[in-house]
Design a protein around this nucleic acid. Structure first.
Length: 863
RNA sequence: GCGGGUAUGGCGGAAUUGGUAGACGCGCCUGACUCAAAAUCAGGUUCCUCUGGAGUGGGGGUUCGAGUCCCUCUACCCGCACCA
């Protein structure tokens, strides 16, 4: 039984070691080191003011990697900073009247204090905060360099506009066609916006996914789909009016199916297409139709239910292959201006959307592709009278020079013909769009541009950078505080000195997070974003860790930025993150009262198996990501206070593989806490054994334990390298059990016992560093464990001299035999055949066949 | 709709290349200690009609041997979503 003094005092120990590490600067990256470098990075947090379990899991995972790599002899860089611009700061300003900067900086201080008890091996000397001019001034310069290099531009584009908030909304902020905060119907508006030309790198970003072999397949696939490469053709269709007279305009459409051009029965353009705008000038009915299309329309629900609608313009488009043939031109709500050319040709026979549209507006359906082997005429007759398009591979029919060609060959032939006729050409189209970075927000990095009536958009000269945010702003009226600030935007044009206006938009906050990993390499340089030599030394990040929710945007933007920075001379690198790991979410059961309101876990009582709240029944919901809205959060501060950092870390690491969701349970954390006490008790027992070299002669028991110790060293090292932290914990616990069971009276028993505890401390150090240090010190080691090398294993001790192998009859286990490792097949067979259950199965008959895999299995095939 | 993933005891999850399924933990059960409880310690715990048999979501296949490979079905999860 553990007396109070035997119990592990985590409060004292954890505080002590955190102080020791800080005093020794244990985690400061070495400046001039001959060791190989290793850069571990977790996605820097938004300073909300409160650390949550997701953070704890993220930083614990990174800490395991950092500490393990340090022990393995690497010069580790493990920095931390703050992704400090963002909307919540403005919301706080709105709700509480506190300035976003003050609120943010206070949150950073609060969160930093909450980080401390976790005992993370962070190098705080590299701390950065993206909302400070020392940080964002560099990205203003970078933006201007991008502009100079043709990687940034300004253009009018359609955006979601909230008419009450007077601001642009991201697609994610539009819920069912309404502004997420105002509830107002969102309008489509055309605004001047700044863009970064990520599409310039579309092909390279796609191709290079292949090289990211230490990224999760899931993330690579998501990026692949997001970039969305499709091969096809652009086809020009001259437009004529109802009387057949050419209007002088030509329509350009993009298609991936030029092989189906002979099946064309209409063309359609987006409501936002310039031709539609031109026609609308003299057509009030079209104006109304376009307005209808612009309403709402961006929410997923709206798109799913939206019926296809078209407006016949009366114009005709001339077919590229069939002289004299024209098809009607529609404005249609399902054509997207942002993809391809904003115009399509419709082939109802071989496209489901076109089929739906054709049936609604009574347009012809012509079959031009038939399945291989089908009777073309019978198939065509069926297709042309039905409502289902045929979109699979097949053979071209009713298509003149394409007849008989399969889809791929027909595409090539059609493109060749288009090119020879001057009516189109083969192209590659990407789904990826340029990154709109303008936000009508205060709490972001000002875009360093001055708009002059005479000179246009003029870059702020270098000497005037950074453009800093004004402090005296108000949030009591909707819209951008920068735009209505009385003086801030009024400046002189740097070129002509006439009165001009500052750009009042700020950068999307993804801008800051697209290059912070490079800033960490030299966080204190003032004249440029980072020192190129340092960046090239540390980058790419060896191991990046974060949530899968950033699989596309943040990770793709960072890959783009690295290329753009390279092309602008900042460094010479393509990929910022060599290794990427996406961790799972931290989940908890959800509870709802009868009236549907969510209940906190702490307010739910358990009567046997049913949950109650103040005696009333509670519906127990499934486990979901911890969130304030569902009240299923657990406060890390409370857990750290009750069980300590090591117990919290151990539970998070042991219960689920790190890439899967983790179910937080009270029982789980208690189990981790129990284990630490068990380990501590073993340590106090080991401490009573004098330190001495291992004897050369050991009884079989201690000899076996010694082999298990070496096997565990090897296995845990391997598990840590491969992010199998839950397995590593299992192996360590297994060894703990074996050490605990060691017969101390056997020859060498004590010595191997003590050795085992020492190794346990070293193996568990990356996972639960405080108790590991405490045990290490208890056992008389003068130096701290954080500075000790990873234990090495003796390959000769990994395997036993004997091996126990399974004996099967017809594939079913009937027993085991223990033979010498070197036993030959005949010996194994002989040993297996004499087993009682084997003889019973054979029933006196000789085996038909015996399969022996040395060291693995004997399988006897009975007649 | 398109693309991807997952499915193993009461629960979380183990199981290199096909080779003793259920490691490790949670929970539960029994015992010790205790006036009692908690904590702790020791033991047990896939299921069943239990000297045997069944078993890794269902069905089928390949193999001496399948959680692992192939086909098929089902359920759930994730990403994209009128992308021409």
């Amino acid at each position: 039984m553990a007396s109070p003094e035997e119990r592990y005092n985590f409060r004292e120990a954890e505080a002590k070691w955190q102080k020791t590490w800080a005093a020794k600067d244990s985690f400061k990256t070495e400046d001039n080191s001959s060791k190989p470098k290793y850069y571990v990075l977790e996605m820097f947090p938004y300073p909300s003011g409160r650390l949550h379990m997701g953070h704890v899991r993220n930083y614990t995972l990174g800490d395991v990697v950092a500490r393990h790599k340090k022990a393995k002899g690497f010069n580790v860089m493990h920095p931390m900073g703050w992704d400090a611009f963002g909307l919540p700061a403005e919301n706080a300003a709105l709700e509480r009247g506190v300035h976003p900067g003050k609120w943010t900086r206070q949150n950073i201080a609060d969160m930093k204090a909450q980080f401390a008890p976790l005992g993370l091996s962070l190098d705080w000397s590299r701390e950065i905060s993206s909302c400070e001019p020392e940080y964002y001034k560099h990205e203003q310069k970078m933006f201007l360099d991008f502009l100079k290099g043709g990687l940034a531009y300004r253009k009018e584009s359609w955006v979601n506009w909230d008419p009450i908030e007077h601001t642009v909304l991201a697609n994610e902020q539009v819920i069912d066609g309404k502004g997420w905060r105002s509830g107002a119907d969102v309008e489509q508006r055309k605004l001047n916006q700044w863009f970064l030309k990520i599409t310039h790198y579309a092909e390279d970003l796609l191709q290079a996914i292949e090289t990211l072999d230490r990224w999760p397949d899931k993330v690579r696939l998501m990026q692949h789909n997001w970039i969305g490469r499709s091969e096809g053709a652009r086809v020009t269709w001259p437009l004529t009016d109802a009387g057949g007279k050419e209007t002088g305009d030509t329509l350009e459409v993009f298609t991936t199916r030029p092989d189906t051009l002979f099946g064309a029965s209409f063309c359609a353009i987006s409501a936002q297409h310039p031709v539609a705008a031109k026609l609308a000038e003299s057509n009030p009915a079209l104006v109304e139709f376009i307005a209808e299309c612009s309403k709402g329309g961006t929410s997923t629900a709206a798109i799913e239910t939206a019926e296809k609608m078209g407006f016949d313009t009366g114009l005709k488009a001339a077919h590229p292959f069939i002289p004299g043939k024209t098809v009607p031109l529609y404005v249609a709500n399902f054509v997207l201006m942002a993809y391809g050319t904003g115009a399509i040709f419709g082939c109802p026979g071989h496209d489901e959307r076109d089929m739906e549209f054709a049936r609604k507006y009574g347009l012809p359906v012509k079959c031009v592709v038939a399945p291989v082997g089908a009777d073309p005429e019978a198939f065509a007759a069926e297709l042309e009278t039905g409502n289902v398009a045929f979109t699979d591979d097949g053979v071209a029919i009713h298509s003149e020079f394409l007849n008989g060609l399969k889809v791929d060959a027909a595409k090539r032939a059609a493109i060749a013909k288009l090119e020879s006729l001057g009516r189109g050409k083969g192209t590659v189209q990407y789904r990826l769009r340029d990154w709109g970075i303008s936000r009508q927000r205060y709490w972001g990095c000002p875009i360093p541009i001055i708009h002059c009536d005479s000179c246009g958009a003029v870059p702020v000269p270098d000497k005037d950078l950074p453009v800093t945010l004004p402090e005296d702003v108000t949030f009591d009226t909707p819209g951008n505080p920068l735009a209505r600030h009385p003086t801030w935007k009024h400046v002189k044009c740097p070129t002509c000195n006439k009165p001009a206006l500052r750009e009042t938009d700020t950068f999307d906050t993804f801008f800051e997070s697209s290059w912070y990993f490079a800033r960490f390499c030299s966080p204190h340089v003032t004249d440029r974003p980072f020192n190129e030599v340092e960046a090239m030394k540390w980058l790419p990040v060896d191991q990046y860790i974060g949530g899968v929710e950033h699989a596309v945007l943040h990770l793709l933007y960072s890959r783009f930025f690295t290329r753009a920075m390279s092309d602008c001379g900042y460094l010479s690198l393509k990929e910022p993150f060599a290794g990427m790991f996406t961790q799972g979410m931290v989940c908890h059961e959800t509870y709802r009262a009868a009236d549907g309101t969510w209940l906190e876990p702490g307010s739910v009582d358990w009567n046997g198996t049913t949950a109650t709240h103040n005696g009333a029944p509670v519906a127990v919901g499934r486990s979901e990501k911890m969130s304030k809205s569902k009240k299923n959060t657990v406060d890390p501060a409370r857990i750290l206070d009750t069980f300590g950092a090591d117990a919290a870390r151990l539970f998070m690491l042991s219960d689920s593989p790190p890439d899967r969701d983790l179910e937080w349970t009270d029982a789980g954390i208690e189990g981790a806490w129990r284990y630490l006490n068990r380990l501590w008790r073993l340590a106090t027992m080991a401490n009573e054994i004098p330190q001495a070299p291992l004897p050369t002669m050991l009884d079989p028991g201690p000899a076996g334990l010694l082999r298990q110790i070496h096997r565990t060293i090897a296995a845990v090292g391997d598990d840590l390298e491969k992010f199998r932290f839950n397995s590593a914990v299992a192996r360590i616990r297994e060894l703990t059990n074996a050490v605990n069971d060691q017969d101390r009276d056997a020859i060498g028993g004590d010595a191997v016992f003590r050795f085992g505890v020492e190794i346990l401390a070293q193996l568990i150090n990356p996972l639960t560093p405080h108790i590991a240090e405490e045990i290490w010190q208890l056992l008389g080691n003068a130096a701290i464990l954080t500075e000790a090398p990873w234990p090495s294993h003796d390959p000769a001790l990994l395997e036993d001299d004997t091996v126990t192998i399974a004996v099967q009859v017809n594939g079913k286990l009937r027993g085991t035999i223990t033979v010498a490792k070197t036993a030959d097949k005949a010996a194994c067979e002989a040993a297996a055949l004499v087993l009682g259950p084997v003889q019973k199965q054979l029933d006196g008959k000789p085996p038909k066949k015996v399969i022996i895999v040395p060291g693995k299995i004997v399988n006897i095939v009975a007649a």
